[in-house]
Amino acid sequence: MPTVEQSVIVSRPVPEVFQYLSTAENWPNWDNSIVESRQITDGPIGVGTRWQGASRILGKRIDWTAEFTEYDAPKRSSAKSVKSPVAFTLTTTCEEVEKGTRVTYRLDSESGLGGVFGRMADPLVTKAFGRSQQASLENLADLLDNEAAQ
């Protein structure tokens, strides 16, 4: 099971960072791989909340629907794909650190991220996606840090 795990420090309080990350419409603003995303269930965010979107990995568009399986605001959330060519679980944690919030993003893929490209591509796709996610987390930190400065 390929795993991508990356972290970044954001100079904002945990509740503020978690709230931003929990809003699906914000994801394309900071995540380089997400083309679009939106919440598709009504009501407040929690276990069972679903959203759908599309990601672009190495130029290939992947449409998906996912559902929160864990939602412990403002510390941790996990979601699992319910419709996607690549089965995945995404876990995001926010923990208070001296300079703000450490955000850790972890993606576990049951079938391998290269599944849509072919199994031989798994190591390449996983490595490229890891680099992309680290850049996305750095975008998140810059975005939230700049909002705070305004």
Rank of each mutant, 00 (worst) to 15 (best):
residue 77 S to W: 08
residue 48 G to W: 14
residue 86 V to G: 03
residue 144 L to Y: 01
residue 23 T to F: 01
residue 45 I to N: 13
residue 36 E to V: 04
residue 18 F to V: 05
residue 144 L to H: 07
residue 41 T to F: 15
residue 2 P to I: 08
residue 61 R to G: 01
residue 125 V to D: 10
residue 41 T to S: 12
residue 53 G to T: 02
residue 20 Y to Q: 10
residue 135 A to K: 14
residue 77 S to K: 12
residue 58 L to M: 14
residue 67 E to Y: 12
residue 29 N to H: 15
residue 65 T to P: 00
residue 67 E to P: 08
residue 55 S to W: 00
residue 135 A to L: 11
residue 56 R to V: 10
residue 12 R to Y: 00
residue 57 I to D: 08
residue 150 Q to G: 10
residue 113 L to V: 04
residue 60 K to D: 11
residue 99 K to C: 07
residue 109 S to H: 00
residue 58 L to K: 09
residue 9 I to K: 03
residue 2 P to D: 15
residue 53 G to E: 05
residue 110 E to W: 03
residue 147 E to G: 03
residue 50 R to D: 03
residue 20 Y to V: 14
residue 59 G to F: 02
residue 80 K to Q: 15
residue 32 N to W: 03
residue 131 R to E: 14
residue 11 S to Y: 06
residue 21 L to G: 04
residue 141 A to Y: 05
residue 137 L to W: 07
residue 86 V to T: 07
residue 26 N to R: 05
residue 69 T to M: 12
residue 144 L to N: 11
residue 14 V to E: 07
residue 84 S to D: 12
residue 96 E to M: 04
residue 92 T to H: 05
residue 42 D to M: 11
residue 20 Y to E: 10
residue 18 F to T: 06
residue 45 I to M: 10
residue 126 T to I: 06
residue 138 E to D: 09
residue 98 E to D: 13
residue 120 M to G: 15
residue 39 Q to P: 02
residue 56 R to T: 13
residue 77 S to M: 15
residue 116 V to N: 03
residue 15 P to V: 03
residue 68 F to T: 01
residue 109 S to K: 00
residue 51 W to T: 00
residue 90 L to G: 08
residue 41 T to N: 07
residue 28 P to R: 02
residue 140 L to T: 04
residue 36 E to Y: 10
residue 3 T to L: 08
residue 99 K to E: 13
